[in-house]
Nucleic acid binder design. Structure first.
Lengths: 352, 352
DNA sequence: CTGTTAGCGCCTTCAT
DNA sequence: ATGAAGGCGCTAACAG
């Protein structure tokens, strides 16, 4: 550890670094240049002469230097990180979105802080609060509805924010999503066109899931238009997991509650798949006895028999587009569109 | 000798903070205390008198102060972050592991950096290198085989490292996993016991997927024991995605290559499910004509008809246990077990 | 193209 | 229980 050259100090020099005592100063010393030159070589190799660059690169290798981004962040006021906040990581279509986000950001040198809220608004706020302390250069968040304080913190952060998987006329900053309301209306219209007339909406409604609420509203609005005077049928559960077993349970619940139902509109392919498979077990013919629709176009949807009518969402693309918007903002490039509607696609298959 | 202060400010003071000009000093001023007291109040409220604490909390609220963790990190040499490295986020059972990890770490104040490697060793190394610069207080990584340099960086980081989803006698630091080799032997033995005797191993083998390699080896070893002299049958693809369509393709490939096959051992439930559904389409009876086994006990496995024989892995638990080990290390608590084998469970269902 | 200087915002150490 | 001093490792600003 060649760092002793200040004999005039009365106190022993502070040694707090437990790990990696190698600093930029060590590299600079080894290469015979100033720390500034090392810093420049690391961030913009072209700004240093070829010979100097080589010496520095060699010094980096010899010393096993690993740059400390916390110091860099503090000095430059750029953290080179993006905070991503999603409801759940597992069993979730949002994983694809995060992969898309990450696929675009990592090659640009940005790293991703990931947190999940379990669909609880208070947890979302706490997470945003906590992640703000990391001073990310951008935020990515699922959903367009947040607590007052959460919104406030995001706005005060002074960095780009992308809300996603929904649309809103009053975004915090940027939005990449689609209309859950319109998507569900499309499903209802499709079923009505096919002649189904006793529709039931079924799904898991977590308190903090504004996408599910939008979908329910889309169902109700379309139902009112297509079946005026008919009482809409809605069956939801709040605490169940998003698993196929829940879909099977919901099927049973719908059949018990509204036996006259001839089509079930599920909020997710996971639930719809569970229901289709249970129908097969029960001898209920899909779609002859009962039509079933899903949401999300999961892998399974096209492989089930009957194959599942559903709404395809470009989940990965949401992540990639969001990352591109964030990058543009973070690199001070112009962003023309503040709200990007990526749309959706109704995939009519055999279950309806 | 104290350095002289320079009262002659010839230059204007630097102002680099674009965002959140509120610092601890502002809070301290508002509360009429020193920054030190604010710092203490934030990290250990009990170390400050009740009245002072209240004034500080009020000042924090009024100023909208958000602590800067980068500065905290630099000064304390603790980042309160954990880096997590997984092959893929989406369509992946690892998402559950990350959720488990995150569920344990977030409440303790740690935040998670997430990166994915797409099963490419070089990307893993690059990611580890890059994440090291964030000076995480711990690493979590899927797999037990890494490049020389990657291993070296992890060791030099001087923080706890958990490798997972496999076992090794020479861990970098800690391991939480199970034997993929033993799991696959168990599957083969089960099939052999049931009277199947022309087994084919089928799966996606990405170059950097050491779990898949271990599984293949387990298959081959068990096959050699149970069917001495019989040439083992292996059908793998390298570049296909882990989706059901690939399972259907593999089924076709196996039937074309080894028509005498009476049982297919897949490396994943996703593939096995695709194969089962295709068998249903083709009129191939499972398990009468062909037995099929999966791996991972995904949600779908129990709902398929026939239901899928598979190996259950406590994916979420791997994450939680890993987090607990990391926490123990990071908080200087004793860790007795360096290698934790969480085992696996063969679930015999109707497909075999 | 390279070096010097000062400071990013917080925490550790020491003193009271 | 609180305050003062200094430095964590790096980079912006300025000079040459």
């Amino acid at each position: 550890m060649p760092r002793e050259s200040v004999p005039t100090k009365t106190r022993a020099p502070r040694r707090r670094s437990a790990t990696s005592a190698v600093t930029m100063a060590d590299v600079a010393a080894a290469a015979g240049v100033s720390t500034q030159t090392v810093s420049r070589a690391l961030r913009d190799p072209a700004s240093v002469s070829g010979e100097t660059l080589q010496r520095i690169e060699e010094a980096v290798r010899n010393t096993h230097y690993v740059q400390n981004f916390a110091a860099s962040h503090l000095a430059s006021n750029r953290s080179m990180t993006v905070a991503a906040i999603i409801p759940a990581i597992s069993t979730s279509i949002f994983a694809e979105t995060i992969q898309g986000l990450s696929d675009v950001l990592l090659p640009e040198g940005y790293q991703v802080f990931l947190g999940h809220t379990d669909y609880v608004a208070a947890r979302e706020e706490a997470l945003i609060r906590s992640l703000s302390g990391r001073r990310p250069d951008g935020f990515f968040i699922i959903g367009t509805q947040h607590t007052r304080d959460a919104t406030h913190i995001l706005k005060r952060a002074g960095v780009p924010v992308v809300e996603s998987w929904g649309l809103t006329s009053r975004p915090i900053d940027l939005v990449v999503g689609f209309s859950n309301h319109a998507a569900m209306k499309t499903v209802v219209n499709h079923l009505a066109d096919r002649g189904y007339h006793r529709l039931t909406f079924a799904g898991v409604m977590k308190p903090g899931d504004d996408r599910a609420k939008e979908r329910r509203k889309g169902f109700l609005d379309a139902h009112g238009e297509r079946f005026p005077g008919v009482e809409p049928q809605v069956v939801t559960v709040a605490s169940n997991s998003m698993i196929m077993a829940t879909g099977a349970e919901l099927l049973d619940l719908v059949r018990a509650t509204y036996p006259e139902t001839d089509a079930i509109v599920f909020t997710s392919d996971v639930l719809a798949s569970g229901a289709v498979l249970r129908c097969n077990d029960l001898g209920v013919r899909v779609p002859a006895d009962l039509a079933i629709t899903g949401f999300g176009n999961y892998d399974i949807a096209g492989h089930l028999r009957p194959s599942l009518t559903t709404v395809a969402i470009a989940s990965r693309r949401i992540g990639m587009l969001s990352a591109e918007l964030l990058l543009a903002r973070m690199q001070n490039k112009p962003v023309t569109e503040r709200v990007i509607d990526i749309g959706f696609e109704l995939l009519v298959r055999d279950s309806s």
